[in-house]
Design a protein around this nucleic acid. Structure first.
Lengths: 252, 252
DNA sequence: AAGTGGTCTAGACCACTTT
DNA sequence: AAGTGGTCTAGACCACTTC
């Protein structure tokens, strides 16, 4: 098969928005990921199968999957196949949580739920989540402890429509990271986030939760998480005690 | 040419450490970058030329360059060629400086040098820069202002051997980011860094430089920068006033 | 042995830039 | 028109995993 015989861009007439074949294949694969045809942790069809399905060469499928792997949507394992990425694996636990101890190896913190409630989105939350002010949201507040010491207090807001049966009990029962619960129980997978970091002073409430004096400097991390299609689905504001921990960032 | 005829891994006997051809090509290209055969901002030979030089196919050179481009060591421009990356271009100004205003578009801050001196490396600095305690280092202290307001006070340490003629005058004269000066005047190009972020209280000295009250919370960013070969060549400690700015981080 | 992803090649054509 | 990187194909073989 020649390239032009299957590339619609090669049709007669000007092609206003050129899009390479492998990008179109990538979009099709992403759709199947988003629709749940292949679920987190599962094996997707082999490159040969996908090439046959889409009637393109294996090399084109390869390039599409290469980009999906670079974006952490799938992960390739030689000899086994290509798997849909999941937050329910040790490797992914520190992808979004960048706070690590100054000394020693990082490990997963204990989570203690303080509050879960449904409410109407305040204006600021609605803006971040691309909702209308007053739309239903789920509010969660919790404290995270490393080695028994409370280090993080965080509040988060989720669109009410996507997280209908979310209760404190289900959060407490779930072992592993919260994003794993969101993905396996609610079908919403976080794939990307942006964080804004600031230094603030602990107010009385935060100080009480963390067992420190009011006024202690805290690292404030405001995160907006996105799922497929760049849709915002979480606003989270965490206060990190950085006396014996730090936020680690790799610049490249 | 067949693959095996030029791949030393295919020689008789077991290959203990398999290394793909394109990785070897990538290493050769990186050597030429490091040695200064092609300088920052310059055009490197075309893929066809490099394929001929290394006696491999263009596709193999392509894959090597793809990875170098992904690591920001070079940048490709269709129709023009492949260029060595440089800090002396607007695009690179915010690669390492992640502090942006809460409102409005970011732009390059003004730098005011406070102090430049030569000294012996304190133990902590020596450890970060992989020097011996007491080795010569250059110490720089400066204040960065956005729109006339001082927002950052930072101190940095560089290996004395690599930055022999560095003076306050040369720093003051230079237009553009400090990394651009390092790269064009001292032949040391920063290609990667790790940062540790913490919240701290402003001490009297920092408060004076930033025109704020002592005790104001500041974001402390401790950065170690690396050049080719993962060699540490800079330790930098910045204090960021985050009342109207924030540290922006993309998680993916 | 069979199937998977990983590497390498050779050749064609496309899009973009410069001459 | 010529040269560059960008896309696509087809086929070969390698490394790894499973049966």
């Amino acid at each position: 098969m020649s390239q032009s015989s299957h590339n619609p861009n090669a049709a007669a007439g000007p092609s206003p928005t050129f899009s390479p074949l492998y990008q179109q294949i990538k979009a099709l694969i992403t759709q199947s990921l988003q629709s749940g045809e292949w679920k987190p942790g599962e094996l997707i069809p082999s490159e040969v199968e996908l090439a046959a399905r889409f009637k393109v060469s294996q090399g084109t499928v390869r390039k599409a999957i290469d980009e999906l792997a670079a974006e952490n949507l799938v992960s390739r394992r030689q000899g086994k196949g290509t798997f849909v990425s999941t937050h329910n694996e040790a490797r992914a636990h520190f992808r979004f949580l960048r706070l690590v101890p100054d000394e020693g190896v990082p490990h997963h913190p204990d989570s203690k739920i303080v509050e879960v409630k449904r409410m109407r989105a305040p204006a600021e939350v609605a803006r971040s989540l691309e909702l209308k002010s007053g739309d239903a949201v789920v509010f969660i507040k919790r404290v995270l402890s490393f080695d028994g010491a409370p280090i993080i207090v965080e509040e988060l807001w989720l669109p009410g429509l996507l997280f209908k049966g979310l209760t404190a009990e289900r959060l407490d029962e779930y072992k592993g990271p919260m994003y794993g619960l969101f993905e396996s129980e609610f079908g919403t997978r976080m794939i990307r986030a942006t964080e804004k970091l600031r230094a603030v002073c602990a107010d009385a409430a935060a100080a009480a939760f963390l067992g420190i004096a009011a006024g202690t400097p805290l690292l404030c991390a405001e995160r907006v998480s996105y799922t497929y299609g760049d849709k915002a689905v979480e606003l989270r504001r965490g206060l990190y005690l950085t006396e014996h921990h730090h936020y680690l960032n790799e610049l490249s």
